[in-house]
Nucleic acid binder design. Structure first.
Lengths: 156, 156
DNA sequence: TAGATCGTTGGTGTAGGACAAACCATTAAT
DNA sequence: ATTAATGGTTTGTCCTACACCAACGATCTA
């Protein structure tokens, strides 16, 4: 059956593409975010906290995929600005439960608003519908990242 | 008309999301790419060169949005591995025309193949169709980035 | 001929982030 | 009760990416 192989073309890889777009976004974001006193990676952390709700620092380290010691520094920054709150977990008093504060939520909203122009520029070739689709795809990709992120019964 | 505002909800911003996904991809890619002797940013450059065809170094600097001096270093790496070729432009002998070599094209293909597992993991929550959609959206977003990238009549 | 442009080299500075060691508080195991 | 393991914190070291500046040779343009 010589008609089959055409269908079976290799899937496109978008790794380099994503990296490229992310870089362009980040470059522009830095200057926009600076007046708000935060940097791109702070924004990522705040976003994760908003989308996932309170998390332990280990969870954050796992999700952000960065070293635990660096998460500490990141949270120190955010807590110093009162954007985030660290509470001791009642269940396990070694743990810190990290949660977005009202101030943090508001700042996150303001940051996203401020970034509107940046995204408009980088995604100028995309329609509103396409941007929404992009958002949903990324959201879905990050929400459940596969079986390796959480093992056993922990809700992660 | 109190019925309108519901429709006019703020569009979702995916800047942080993209950054997050890009980071996860990059972390895994580094180890996969290492045996091939290249790094993620080399891959981006090769991808751009494949998708755009030969370009001057200025063009590359503009598209990759990195400083010209750093583009030189990047190309030095790639040319040392014979993945890329610098020719003097016949029209303007100051210019270098950078082009992907056959070796470079093959390595790029191999790299993308090697990255399949990485993308499968990061995008495990997405179906094949969704991944293709994602690819197309990103491709479209990068292809024409708006009027500010190229001015006047240069084909960029 | 003078000035602008493309690429190159070399150097400086900043930042992100990995990694390791040592520490405290707390919990779990024996 | 003692010991071991765990979550978080601090400190310090190291590497890489990258922006930026200055100076240069070759080339093009006025």
């Amino acid at each position: 059956m010589p008609s089959l192989p055409v269908v079976n073309q290799p899937p496109h890889r978008c790794g380099a593409l994503i990296d490229h777009v992310a870089r362009r976004l980040r470059l522009r974001s830095e200057s926009v975010l600076a007046p708000l006193g935060i940097r791109p990676r702070h924004l990522i952390a705040l976003t994760v906290l908003r989308d996932r709700g309170e998390s332990s620092q280990q969870d954050l380290a796992k999700i952000l995929e960065m070293d635990g010691t660096n998460v500490v520094g990141l949270l120190n920054d955010l807590e110093a600005e009162n954007l985030v709150e660290r509470r001791r977990s009642t269940a396990d008093r070694r743990r810190h439960v990290v949660e977005l504060t009202d101030v943090g939520a508001k700042l996150l909203a303001r940051a996203e608003f401020a970034l509107a122009a940046v995204e408009d520029e980088v995604f100028s070739a995309l329609s509103d519908d396409q941007r929404e689709t992009l958002y949903e795809l990324l959201q879905q990709a990050t929400r459940r990242t596969g079986p390796e992120a959480c093992r056993e019964a922990d809700p992660c």
